[in-house]
Design a protein around this nucleic acid. Structure first.
Length: 646
RNA sequence: GGCGGUAUAGCUCAGUUGGCUAGAGCAUGCGGUUCAUACCCGCAGUGUCGAUGGUUCAAAUCCGUCUACCGCUACCA
């Protein structure tokens, strides 16, 4: 009985280590808008979101709080659900990777892949982060440092399971070539092909023994299934996939029509995930969209920078639809978007309050004033109407085509254009002048009818983006029909029904006042955030003997030379007492050679020598860093090289 | 270093397969209007379409080189 076309859409599952900020929340709002739109045009939509709840980081956070990991993630998952609720999102299912059903199927998947030889056990030589007690592949290591804690990693061996990625490489390459829409946006596709597929895929390490908070490998319980197989398979376990026979739900909805994810995890979704599915013999998702990031004042949002915005705070100030509108209209398709309080206020006032809000308000007010709140029947058309009608209809078509390509911001700007056209129509037809002339009554009826109809169309079109505003508008004009079908032609508004009371949809915001209010709130939240900061970066306690193993000395830089074919590396010659040494250091982004020469810095002198870019390095300079910013450690007063540092 | 992307009005960006006086929104200035949330409508702009060569009857749009910024990737003991 249900023969609607199905549409399966997912967000990435959010990592349940802490409350997501507004940048993280953008994803679910975008996905929600797409899902609601597809529903509106008549598809049978299934919208999945959820949380990724395993891993060492969560284990550590829980330990620090003195509670079990399960208790910890229960708390965070609850917070996330609350936020998603506040954002007015309409997901059909919220999966948690700690759900028993998910765990069971992930174990089966692992076993199946092992049994068919795609997963094998081996010695893993990789990068190891001591304080975190965890392993990383070459590619996971960011800037020579642990991706979790940011400290240097070292090479070590561990027994582990591996997935034979290379076996499916050619098939994947072919698939990507034959399905140009598979990876979006386009430029990301090239990155994946050129950086990973063409050079050849390495086998992926898919288990850990260094921590226990995860899904155990059932036939080898010392191992825990590492994040990729666990997290990615949520997209199919949520529907009831099972290697021994899947559910009807799965058969109906899989493959996904689109996975909406952040651009940072594109690799896992466009390479590892499809390969896993190939290995399982399941169809691949149709499309993967790596959306851009939302930046705060052109800077990455992070706790340590103190520039984090949270959805709940923003909603308090600007309303859900105010924020949804901002996120959806301001974010470009492929480039990072930006958010500041000032720009939110500017967009809110001009687009929502002035253009849309005022249009509805003035139109409803005129119906009340001139026709006792009863929507009049159209009676006398003329040429002024043609363009409004044409714009309304072409907007409907345009929004559809934009949304089919996931271009939410373009779709919204198209709708805004219709609102502007409608405002202009009022000026062209001058209803207040028509009202003074009894002989123009039929014309006045027509004008107001057309306006209400145009507003009705707008309210339908914005419903995926601003659901509650859409409902409010529909309420004010008492629109009966809000279906997609009803806006395929102009004129489905019913004459003779009463409009409601004209109430402003969006109250204009006074920028100065609002900014003062926001600033006044900031101190309250800042200290609370700072408290959490230190514990995240704390290493295990060591004895004085551990410290004594390291030798630090002052060193005077006597020459600095950029290493060829490297962006960051300097070959430095330093003087430590009477000795001269060559040290390679990655600080070229922060210091020029001239700035370095003559400085007295602190050096670890008994570090095992290594070669970097073929150049030998006998030690390491100490430097402080926050994010991308870096500052060398020097002595407080002029000091010669060679002095002990302790 | 390798791969890729972007550089267009003060700001944020559109500009499909090269074609007439290069566009939109916001901000600015001027004018109009009063139904409406000091709102709306109109007009005015400014632009060496990053720089420089080339292909072409014709290039913001194609090709070469250069510069700046961004992303992915490697190097940062």
């Amino acid at each position: 009985m249900n023969n609607k076309e199905k549409y399966y859409i997912t967000t990435a599952i959010a990592y349940a280590s802490r409350k997501p900020h507004i940048g993280n929340s953008y994803e679910i709002v975008l996905t929600d808008a797409i899902a609601r739109f597809q529903k509106l045009i008549g598809k049978d939509v299934f919208f999945l979101t959820g949380t990724d709840e395993h891993g060492q980081k969560i284990q550590l956070e829980a330990e620090a709080k003195g509670i079990s990991p399960q208790q910890y993630v229960d708390g965070v998952a609850g917070e996330i659900k609350d936020l998603w609720g506040l954002m007015d999102t309409s997901y059909d299912k919220f999966i948690r990777t700690t759900d028993p059903a998910h765990k069971k199927v992930v174990q089966k998947i692992f076993k199946k892949l092992y049994d068919q030889g795609d997963i094998y056990k081996s010695e893993y030589e990789g990068w190891y982060c001591v304080p975190c007690e965890s392993f990383f592949t070459e590619t996971q290591v960011t800037d020579g440092c642990c991706p979790d804690c940011g400290r240097p990693v070292q090479k070590t061996k561990e027994e582990a399971y591996f997935f034979k990625m290379s076996k499916y490489q050619d098939r994947l390459m072919k698939h990507i070539e034959e399905h140009p829409e598979f990876i979006q946006p386009e430029s990301r596709k090239r990155e994946m092909i050129n950086n990973f597929l063409k050079p050849g895929l390495q086998d992926l390490c898919v288990s850990r023994t260094s921590f226990s908070w995860g899904i155990p490998v059932d036939f080898d319980p010392a191992h825990v299934i590492y994040v990729w197989i666990d997290a990615l398979s949520n997209y199919i376990t949520a529907l009831g996939y099972d290697p021994d026979g899947s559910s009807d739900l799965y058969k109906k909805y899989w493959p996904a029509d689109v996975h909406v994810i952040g651009k940072d995890i594109l690799r896992f979704h466009t390479i590892y995930w499809p390969i896993m599915l190939m290995a399982l013999g399941e169809p691949l998702p149709k499309q993967i969209f790596g959306h851009p990031w939302l930046l705060f004042d052109n800077d990455k949002m992070s706790k340590s920078k103190g520039n984090v915005m949270y959805a709940d705070d923003l909603i308090r100030h600007f309303g859900v639809d105010g924020i949804r509108y901002y996120l959806l209209s301001e974010m470009p398709f492929a480039q990072d978007g930006n958010i500041t309080y000032e720009t939110i206020i500017a967009r809110y006032n001009s687009d929502l309050a002035n253009t849309i809000g005022n249009l509805v308000n003035r139109s409803v007010a005129m119906v009340s004033k001139y026709f006792g709140s009863v929507i009049p029947a159209p009676a006398a058309y003329n040429d002024l109407d043609n363009d409004l009608v044409a714009t309304a209809l072409s907007t409907v078509a345009d929004v559809k085509s934009k949304m089919d390509n996931l271009k939410a911001s373009d779709a919204l700007s198209s709708i805004l254009n219709l609102a502007r056209r409608s405002n202009k129509y009022i000026d062209e037809t001058m209803p207040w002048a028509l009202a003074k002339d009894e002989s123009q009554k039929e014309r006045l009826q027509t004008v107001l009818y057309n306006l209400i109809e145009s507003i009705r169309i707008i309210s339908v079109l914005i419903s995926p983006f601003m659901p509650s505003t859409s409902a409010k508008i529909a309420g004010q004009i008492n629109a009966g029909e809000l279906s997609w079908e009803s806006i395929q032609s102009f004129g489905k508004t019913k004459a003779g029904v009463n409009v409601g009371i004209a109430e402003p949809l969006f109250v204009r915001i006074d920028e100065n006042e609002k900014m003062a209010q926001i600033l006044a709130e900031q101190p309250k939240t800042a200290p609370a955030e700072k408290q959490e900061e230190p514990e995240k970066d704390t290493k295990p306690e060591v004895s004085i003997d551990d410290f004594a193993k390291l030798e630090f000395k002052t060193a005077k830089i006597i020459s600095a030379e950029k290493i060829e074919k490297s962006d960051k590396l300097y070959k430095l010659i330093v003087e430590i007492g009477t000795e001269q040494r060559q040290i390679v250091s990655g600080i070229a982004k922060h210091y020029t050679a001239d700035e370095l020469i003559g400085k007295t810095v602190i050096v670890i002198t008994n570090l095992k020598p290594v070669k970097l870019r073929g150049v030998e390095s006998n030690g390491m300079l100490l430097a402080a860093s926050i994010g991308d910013d870096l500052s060398l450690c020097t002595t407080d007063k002029p000091f010669p090289g060679g002095a002990q540092v302790r």
